[in-house]
Design a protein around this nucleic acid. Structure first.
Lengths: 144, 144
DNA sequence: GCACATGATGATACTGCATATCACTACCGG
DNA sequence: CCGGTAGTGATATGCAGTATCATCATGTGC
């Protein structure tokens, strides 16, 4: 079983299930995203799809966010990055050299963090962990 | 060594030591920050100090960043927050209700994260952890 | 004390990301 | 076929942050 889409339950279908219409622009965007799993900015999408207006791109991204299909990642330089979220809960690695965004999961981390509740004043609702790395692709170049 | 200034070694002196001039606007900004340890946005400072121009506020914040006196925190809604960094290395708590930013340290976390090196492809340069919480002040209101 | 070089300032213009507006189009149900 | 609603995109607008630049302050050498 498991159509082996492994974890991508046909993104378009997800939208359809939530009552949204499947339009050409939305299909174009989703299709593009499927090839850009690396982490992308809104402006990137806009640049790649001349046929789709800015407004629609931003609207669609919000749609996908609400649908839980993509996740948002605030970056230091202002422009947030988005990425298709395959796993339920995960964290990000950001290459400081090329900006590529990756995902990882580590159960040990989650367990530990839960144990921290006592150190934190107030009720914990969620957390975020990011690792700043030099990614494999940039390593040879970067480390001289 | 370690003058034990506990952790705030006279912010103005830090700037002076780095060869910057101590001017009225800079003093005004630093003084304001000392009272706003909660985490603040650039625009907040600008609004509070009519006598100081936008440009100068942004310039001074960058100065303080470079001097390591304040630290930057990317937020989901775009406008980054800054806070006086008292401890060397620390992480943040962000109240989703009122936006207040706090700091905490947890050696256990650091130790664990170092152990994760194997799970992360590439060279780890740094990390960031944020907890999203409902802070003590907001709890009664927020939780119904 | 004066002149000059340099640092700092702030008003303004500008850039870039994101949202709001709004007229128009596509689609769906009757 | 018709009307209503969802969706679209051009444009205007908002807002954070940066760049420009004339002006002012500071410090130094004389």
């Amino acid at each position: 079983m498991s159509q082996a889409q492994t974890l991508r339950p046909d993104l378009i279908a997800v939208l359809e299930d939530q009552g949204y219409r499947i339009t050409a622009p939305r299909q174009a965007i989703v299709q593009l995203l499927e090839h850009k799993q690396e982490g992308f900015t809104a402006e990137e999408i806009i640049a790649d799809l001349d046929s789709v207006g800015r407004a629609t791109v931003y609207r669609t991204i919000k749609l996908l966010l609400r649908a839980g299909v993509v996740c948002k990642l605030a970056t230091m330089d202002g422009a947030p990055k988005y990425s298709l979220s395959r796993a339920e809960h995960h964290h990000h690695t950001v290459c400081v050299s090329c900006g590529a965004v990756g995902e990882f999961r580590a159960a040990t981390v989650e367990r530990l963090l839960r144990g921290l509740a006592g150190d934190i004043p107030g009720r914990i609702l969620g957390h975020r962990i990011e690792f700043y790395i030099t990614c494999a692709a940039c390593l040879p170049v970067d480390s001289n």
